[in-house]
């Protein structure tokens, strides 16, 4: 509920700095919600990454960009209609889902039981989330690391040397200048 209020406030606010701050609060609320729903590992990560690192990134960008959301009010109603229509379809989709906390839901009776029963003895780690993440689905985690690595390289390329070159003010220039020394 608090998350709803925060999200709405973020959308309405013009001040980008306040929006970024509220994004942090939103992530923190999400993290506490995860604790309530027994997902402690996810809550840790969300609090550290969502509320921490992404806040730092947003504030860093704001310091570089110094913007204000100037558009007074979104003009056309098309986005609103699309959003409401998509939401309605998704809500209709939830009607077929098992209710919250139902122990008989199909999701709990496929491989989850296997992981819970055998995971501890097979790997010797009591935390099943860690077991699945690092052992059974180790390749996924490797792929995830690759994604983060690629993103880090891309950010470094975008914000690295090239950015410090002097450029014509306000005019568009090509991102890659062929004459620039490599």
């Amino acid at each position: 509920m608090f998350m709803l209020a925060t999200a709405l406030a973020i959308v309405r606010l013009r001040n980008l700095f306040a929006s970024a701050m509220l994004t942090g609060i939103y992530s923190l609320l999400a993290a506490s919600l995860f604790v309530v729903m027994d997902a402690v590992d996810v809550a840790f990560t969300e609090a550290a990454v969502g509320a921490g690192i992404s806040m730092v990134l947003f504030l860093g960008t704001l310091a570089l960009v110094k913007g204000k959301d100037r558009a007074s009010r979104p003009k056309d109603v098309l986005p609103l209609i699309v959003a409401i229509a998509t939401g309605a379809v998704l809500l209709y989709g939830t009607l077929d889902m098992p209710s919250y906390g139902d122990p008989n839901a199909p999701i709990h009776h496929h491989v989850a039981d296997l992981y819970l029963d055998e995971g501890g003895s097979e790997t010797g780690v009591p935390n099943i989330v860690t077991v699945v993440l690092a052992s059974y689905r180790g390749y996924d985690t490797l792929g995830e690391t690759t994604v983060v690595f690629t993103a880090a390289i891309a950010v470094m390329l975008l914000l690295g040397r090239a950015r410090r070159r002097p450029r014509k003010n306000g005019k568009k220039i090509d991102a890659i200048d062929p004459e620039a020394p490599v």
Binding site: M37, D38, A39, D41, V42, T45, E46, V49, G50, I53, S54, L57, F58, G60, T61, L64, V65, I107, H108, V111, A112, Y115, L116, G119, I128, V129, V131, V132, L133, R137, D140, T141, E144, V147, V148, T150, A151, A152, A154, V155, L158, L159, R163, A175
Partner: peptide, 29 residues
């Protein structure tokens, strides 16, 4: 609780921060 969605979302959070960082870097450029 079911550990599988937790694992998926752990991965998703980290990938999410990567895309956010990339998006913000593009915005700066």
């Amino acid at each position: 609780s079911n550990p599988l969605p937790h694992v998926l979302i752990l991965t998703a959070i980290v990938v999410g921060i990567a895309t956010t960082a990339l998006g913000l870097a593009l915005i700066v450029r």
